[in-house]
Amino acid sequence: MRAAFSEALVRLAKADPTVLLLTGDHGYALFDDFRRECPAQYINAGIAEQNMVGMAAGLARSGFRPFVYGLAAFIPVRVVEQIKLDVAHDRLPVIFIGDGAGFVYSHLGTSHQSTEDIACTRAIPNLSVYSPADRFEVTACMEMAYHSKSPVYLRMGKSDRGDVHVAVAQASVGSLLQAKPGKSDDIAFIATGALVRTTLDIAADSYPDVSVWSAPFIKPLDNEQVTAICKQHRIIVVLEEHSVLGGLGSAIAEIASEFAPVRILRIGVNDRYSEHCGTYEYLLKEHGLDRLTIELRVHDFLTAN
């Protein structure tokens, strides 16, 4: 997934000399190819994210296409105001890459973990929010972000969970992608990012008739498609490695409540920080996002409803 990201970035930069990569002193090995192939388009802005985003706005105003890279805890969360005022207000074509979203930095603690970034960015007008699940979605998201010529926050979470599609995703902005078909009109799963793979594994073993949708776009979100899925099922389960407040689950519930009221189980990070550190798998378990806990919660919800 990270290789696909790097490849897409290099491809876009080689095709368009106005593409610039700005990093806040992060991405040590990730940008080796970019620095080798496009050295003049690489700017390490230092450990100074607020200035970096302001500068990206200035560069965009003078005709450049900046990609601004940082850890999701910093880009976008640390610089929400710069994104709002300097970039999104005027729909400047700046693409923000928030890497390591969720609990990727499981050993490092709260400062490097990011479970509020979607909530922080969703409410900013003109700003789109993408959340790819695998290498195919990353490639599609990078291309679509570039061609949108408008500000995009691209969230990259745990990147080594494996593919969720078998081919390049044919997507239009806002659409959910079906990762697994299913005949069930009882339940549908909608997930984003790293939890799509987990959801597919759960569905394959325990819910073979249930469809799984991946949401590479949190905003915009295809109202009609979401409405149709909600109308076709009795229960929707939404899964994300992000707070249950303001993320994909909220976005789905907002649409459903207005157009197709349905029971929705939102599985995500409850309103809390990590207590301890450990492996990524450990931290998922601490937050109830490991496979076993998710299966129990789904089972309990189905039993109760």
């Binding site: 985003v53 302001g54 990206a56 200035g58 560069l59 105003r61 003078s62 450049f64 300097d86």
Partner: peptide, 10 residues
């Protein structure tokens, strides 16, 4: 100030 620095860099 930062936007201006970006314009100057551009």
């Amino acid at each position: 100030f930062s936007v201006g620095v970006g314009m100057a860099m551009g």
